[in-house]
């Protein structure tokens, strides 16, 4: 039996990697990948926490729900990125500053 703490650690590491990618990358797609990492870290935590609710399977249910939500979000996000690239000829979020000034 793998202890609960190890799941939590893997989740935390995944979340941190995702967070790092979101904060440092200059490419919107890489950032999107970072976001996916963080969502999956949360999903792992959901699944791990599911062992304490074997009757209703709440953890697994929430995980499936979150995977659907993430897939939808990625689809929307990629569409936005495509439209942004068409408009700005870049997907670096720092350069997309037309709303300033």
């Amino acid at each position: 039996m793998i202890p609960f703490t190890h799941f939590m650690l893997v989740g935390a590491i995944l979340f941190c990697i995702g967070l790092y990618a979101v904060l440092t990358k200059r490419n919107a797609i890489q950032i999107l990948i970072g976001i996916e990492f963080m969502i999956n870290a949360a999903i792992i935590n959901f699944v791990a926490a599911g062992q304490y609710d074997k009757d209703r399977m709440g953890g697994q249910l929430f995980a499936l729900f979150a995977i659907v939500m993430a897939a939808a979000a990625v689809a929307v996000a990629l569409a936005i990125i495509l439209k942004v690239y068409q408009h700005y000829k870049t997907i670096d979020p720092d350069k997309i500053d037309q709303l300033r000034n």
Binding site: L19, V22, L23, T24, P93, D94, D97, R100
Partner: peptide, 12 residues
């Protein structure tokens, strides 16, 4: 700063 990632960092 107008930089998205800074805002995120600050939020963090």
């Amino acid at each position: 700063t107008g930089k998205l990632q800074h805002y995120l960092l600050i939020t963090l």
